[in-house]
Design a protein around this nucleic acid. Structure first.
Length: 750
DNA sequence: ATCACCCGGGG
DNA sequence: GTGTACGGGTGAT
């Protein structure tokens, strides 16, 4: 048989691996295979003997191999290990949990416990999902890959796709799980959309029947809620579907489910909806992070490249995905991975503490408008640093090379000279692959360019998080000293780049982590040459991001000194680059976004500083128009909505802010939002201390309801200040101009 | 003035 | 099973 592995997972009842294969002829086959996982145990001899004795009394038919020898990630050799094989899959986790719960992890060191069975199986078979493969049946399945997972150009399998769209019969203003299903649409390419309406259980039965007939390989879910499947299951349960809702290919199997939960990610609380996996089909949630960022082609590509099954990959965070790749890499090389991470404490002097723990370098930016400025950006600076300087938890401050020649700037940490770290080893091919796809993207057009775009962008996210993960205390292969080392190198590289630029008569206006803004002096020098010189000097590519006709660096509103990441400028191709102001924020009302966009649109017609200053006055005409519109109630309520992430439960708020008030509204309506979900509100009376007067839930707001136009007016003025502060227009000054007490400011400029 | 809270990265 | 640190703005107290 030849085809592509769609999905695979352990069957915990039969203790075998289930493999779903999309065959060349378009049909799908379900295969099962024998597979025996194992983990390793280390410890004192008599302790291990005691464990052996204990296991001999257990009913589990496990096999034990004594006296194994293996290495850890840092090269430490472990001897006399027990290797325990488990014919019963659940017994494996049971034993590990048991040892943990008895508090005996200090006596028994457990290794390779929590690597997914699917991953182990794939490593053993030297195969990846979504890879064109020949499969033969002997006593076990035998796979022969017909492609290399590292291939850039290949034809993925043709997958049949369908999309489920659910309409809820809302009883209140906001949909609740207790609201019944109004109807379901099933869309698929090549077929007409099927729409089911009517009685709820009939709708669900029609869905199951139609899905079986259509037999898609990939099922997308659509709807404003990302937990559409959990809603479907809930309704099925309420409707008396006793044996559950069978949306997968295996009628005996239920959906595999993971509970919804909230957690911290990217510094904010995220609500992760429950995850459902289908058997034999791939359920893709269009709202999941990796899908949104990279589409199905990015996911398929990474599934091949990383060996992570597509359905599981689609609901991972990028950090989770890169960790899984590292885990797989270690497992593949026979390196043992401790179960629960316990990092040895490294001695750190006060001097070391003083110099570590600072992020990327920031030069003082100079407030004001500049002409003829170019921006240079290092390409994937942090990941490149990790590879080039071999930064990994086991290489930084390694015990084997205390006197290493390789030392981290300022921190003076030693870095291993004897081995290449696990983290850079996994990262290097990712950087190279992304680079290759970016090049393909630039040299292609239309669909092909889009395809390569999706494939490179999923890799971009792995790279971005691989740096942050070093500093994350729970990271599998992370270490705070690694994080510090990367930052230290980053600061040094940016400083070095600045020196090179200045040596060649460029004036450095601003620097921020991995970007430099330079201005050409009178003597002619070429920017492309400069990039090459810096790249050559430093060993990491720096690219010309763009040339600005003019760029405005903005001050901190309270102190008026330069704010590092607030600026806007007009690039030579006529596009604007804007950072740090209201417009860039996701939570602001549309009216603020539209206003700043209108003003910048006018500015962008200016080709130089002189013209820019001439166009400043136009801002006030636009501002007056917006304020007038607010007062006349001519604003679409949609444009007044703040969409804010909820970070805590209602009771945990200590302040009567907008979000708190909005949550109180929702509670009254019987809706509870979890941290990580979004609340949408309109400000109706900022000054009021009563929640029902203060804000209105966006969904409840009627066309004729009144809003706090004074409040929105003041936000417009703040948004103006954000843009114009470098030219002397403070909020008070803007007020005076609006009142006619002042014309405008005459600004001095050269 | 200080505190509590929320936001940001790419193309 | 969950990237970091940190600076910035707004609104409440």
């Amino acid at each position: 048989m030849r085809g592509w592995i769609l999905d695979l997972y352990p069957d915990y009842y039969r203790n075998e691996i289930v493999v779903w294969v999309k065959r060349e002829n378009g049909r799908v086959a379900k295969l099962t295979d024998r597979f025996v996982p194992s983990f390793y145990v280390g410890g004192e001899e008599d302790e291990l003997n005691r464990l052996l004795e204990e296991l001999s009394f257990s009913s589990s038919p496990s096999r034990i191999v004594c006296g194994c020898e293996k290495e850890l990630i840092d090269g430490t050799r472990l001897k006399n290990l027990l290797k325990i094989e488990f014919k019963d899959y659940l017994e494996m986790t049971r034993l590990a949990e048991n040892i943990l719960q008895r508090g005996e992890l200090s006596r028994y060191h457990l290794y390779n416990v929590d690597i997914s069975l699917a991953l182990r199986y794939l490593v053993e078979k030297k195969i990846s999902p979504m890879l064109h493969t020949r499969i033969e049946r002997a006593s076990v399945l035998k796979y022969t890959a017909m492609e290399d997972p590292a291939d850039l150009l290949y034809n993925p399998p043709e997958l049949r796709e369908a999309e489920i769209e659910i309409r809820v019969e809302r009883r209140g203003k906001i949909a609740k799980p207790s609201d019944p299903i109004q109807g379901i649409s099933l869309h698929s390419s090549g077929n007409d959309s099927r729409i089911f309406n009517g009685e709820e259980t009939e709708v669900l039965e029609s869905l199951v029947t139609e899905l079986r007939q259509l037999d898609p390989d990939v099922v997308y879910t659509r709807g404003e809620t990302t937990d559409s499947v959990s809603y479907l299951l809930h309704r099925a349960e309420a409707g008396g579907f006793e044996d559950g809702l069978h949306l997968g290919r295996d009628r005996r199997r239920q959906l595999r489910k993971r509970e919804g939960r909230t957690y911290f990610s990217y510094g904010r609380v995220v609500f992760k909806p429950p995850f459902y996996a289908l058997s034999g089909r791939i359920l893709l949630d269009r709202g999941s992070f990796l899908y949104r960022e990279s589409g199905v082609h990015g996911l398929i590509d990474l599934s091949r490249f990383s060996g992570i099954p597509l359905q599981a990959l689609s609901q991972m965070s990028p950090g989770n995905a890169i960790t899984t790749m590292q885990l797989r890499h270690a497992y593949e090389k026979g390196i043992l991975v401790p179960w629960k991470r316990q990092n040895p404490e490294y001695f750190k002097t006060a001097w070391m503490l003083l110099h570590s723990d600072r992020g990327g370098y920031i030069f003082d930016s100079r407030v004001g408008i500049y002409e003829d400025v170019a921006e240079l950006d290092f390409a994937s600076m942090y990941p490149n640093i990790m590879v080039r300087y071999n930064i990994s938890p086991e290489t930084v401050l390694c015990r084997c090379c205390r006197d290493s020649e390789h030392r981290v700037p300022v921190l003076d940490y030693n870095i291993c000279e004897k081995r290449i770290g696990l983290v850079p080893e996994v990262l290097k091919p990712v950087i190279e692959r992304r680079f290759a796809y970016k090049r393909l993207m630039r040299t292609s057009q239309g669909d092909a360019a889009e395809l390569y775009g999706e494939r490179q962008s999923i890799l971009k996210w792995l790279l971005i998080t691989s740096f942050g993960y070093q500093g994350y205390r729970n990271a599998r292969f992370g270490r705070i000293e690694g994080h510090e080392a990367i930052c230290a190198y980053g600061r040094e590289l940016l400083l070095k780049a600045k020196e090179v630029a200045e040596y060649f008569d460029f004036e450095v206006i601003h620097g921020l982590v991995d970007s430099l803004w330079v201005k050409r002096e009178a003597r002619v020098s070429d920017l492309e040459d400069l990039c090459e010189l810096i790249s050559g000097e430093i060993g990491i590519d720096i690219n010309l991001e763009g040339r600005y006709r003019w760029i405005v660096f903005l001050p901190n509103k309270s102190t008026e000194v330069g704010a590092p990441n607030r600026y806007y400028g007009l690039l030579e191709d006529g596009s604007l680059k804007v950072r740090g102001i209201e417009m860039r924020m996701h939570n602001i009302p549309g009216i603020i976004w539209a206003y700043q966009k209108d003003v910048l649109e006018v500015f962008s017609r200016s080709q130089n500083i002189m013209e820019f200053h001439d166009s400043l006055g136009e801002t006030f005409n636009i501002l007056r128009r917006y304020i007038e519109n607010l007062r006349n109630k001519g604003v679409n309520p949609e444009d007044l909505i703040f969409s804010v992430f909820v970070t805590k439960s209602l009771g945990d708020y200590r302040v009567n802010n907008f979000v708190n008030a909005a949550l109180k509204h929702l509670r009254r309506e019987g809706v509870e939002l979890f941290p990580g979900q979004v609340v949408r509100y309109i400000v109706t009376d900022q000054r009021s201390r009563r929640y029902f007067e203060k804000v209105s839930i966006a969904e409840d707001f009627e066309e004729e309801d009144s809003y706090d136009s004074e409040f929105y007016r003041s936000r417009l003025i703040k948004a103006t200040e954000s843009l114009l502060l470098p030219f002397g227009y403070t909020a008070e000054c803007i007020e005076q101009i609006l009142c006619g007490q002042k014309q405008s400011i005459l600004t001095d400029f050269i």
